[in-house]
Nucleic acid binder design. Structure first.
Lengths: 206, 206
DNA sequence: ACCTGAACACCGTTCAAGT
DNA sequence: ACCTGAACACCGTTCAAGT
């Protein structure tokens, strides 16, 4: 064969196939990806700089396909909207999260969302020096809950005698129901604390 | 050589060496671990059930060595104490976090901490049905901030023009300073929202 | 019971050869 | 420029052989 008239590969095709692979639940790898593309592993290196670059490609593809962009608006509505949009995105690719979790965020679309967030918080009256930290908290939250989506149905399994925990767990929800409920409570808590913080430290009439 | 008179290996020695390896920043692997123990990779299989089992061993070892146990006390003091204890533990082994992040928690010491937490929240007057969800929020929080410790010094790096975000980032802290500050704000926010939630939904005189 | 050494299937990556 | 096939160093795991 060698070089065909029309290319078999492109970064987009690679990114899509890689996402498919990860979403299918099989372990991600260059070889498995090549199989899925009916191509030799070495072919991939004509388009991409190796395994890590493919992971980065997947992240970008996920963001551009599955992150609902949130328009500028007052922070009270914006904050939950951004958190829910991120969670919807992560929920579509839970298996990807552990792969991308320790890499720097440079994706323009994500940065833009954080910029809109930063602007809304400043305009809402939060002290400029706190805004980056607040976004950090929201980000840690989003990632923590993203991982929650990737984790097993029974997050905790007490093997020992407990006073309260085991008893409460028995009546509690599991799986998606639990995960959604916890997330919504988390959002409520965040919003409530932002209101309280603004009342304490906010700038009047921003 | 073959079997020596005194054993070269034990699960404890394996766990300690594995933690050392991970803490050193080198990528974790069975072969690298064997090298560090001056032993053949196949020797490890006499003591341990494979790579995943070694990761589980590391988690347990980290918890028993580095998690400061928090005594029962009213929830207002208990919640920040537990969060800070977890963070101190994670901070000692940031590279381990990505490895353990998608596995079920069964460690007795961790379960015990969550049990103490659950008991304090119920006794504090939080509705029993909410307590598991609240602990889920705290857990997502702890993991999100744990990963924050493992992530690069510059978490965000805008490559594009921004209205507010880039400007705020320039004046902002980086590295440990930023990470600590964000964590403390997060703890404040959580506590504040728990107080508000209790005032709204709490049971009087529990 | 515990360690070695050989063997295995698989992994990510490089590179010469073909079009 | 883009794909193949051979080659490489490495990975996790199994197993027979030695004490």
């Amino acid at each position: 064969m060698a070089r065909p008239k029309v290319n078999l590969l492109s970064t987009d095709r690679i990114a899509d196939a890689a996402l498919d692979l990860v979403d299918s639940g099989e372990p991600f790898g260059v070889n498995a990806l090549a199989r899925r593309l009916s191509v030799t592993p070495s072919s991939l290196y004509n388009h991409v700089d190796g395994r890590d670059a493919i992971v980065e490609l997947m992240r970008r593809r996920m963001v551009e396909r599955d992150l609902d962009l949130v328009a500028p608006q007052p922070w009270e509505a914006l904050v939950p909207a951004v958190l829910r949009a991120q969670r919807r995105m992560y929920a579509r690719h839970p298996q990807l999260i552990p792969l991308i979790v320790d890499k720097t965020i440079t994706d323009p679309l994500v940065i833009e969302q954080y910029d809109i967030l930063a602007t809304a918080l400043v305009e809402g009256g939060f002290p400029a020096g706190d805004v980056i930290a607040i976004i950090g908290v929201l980000d840690a939250f989003a990632i923590g809950f993203g991982l929650d989506l990737a984790s097993p149905a029974d997050v905790w399994r007490p093997d020992i005698e407990t006073r309260t925990f085991g008893r409460l767990l028995e009546g509690a929800e599991t799986g998606d129901e639990r995960s959604d409920h916890v997330f919504e409570i988390g959002v409520d808590m965040l919003l409530e604390s932002l209101h309280a913080r603004l009342a304490r430290t906010g700038i009047r009439d921003a």
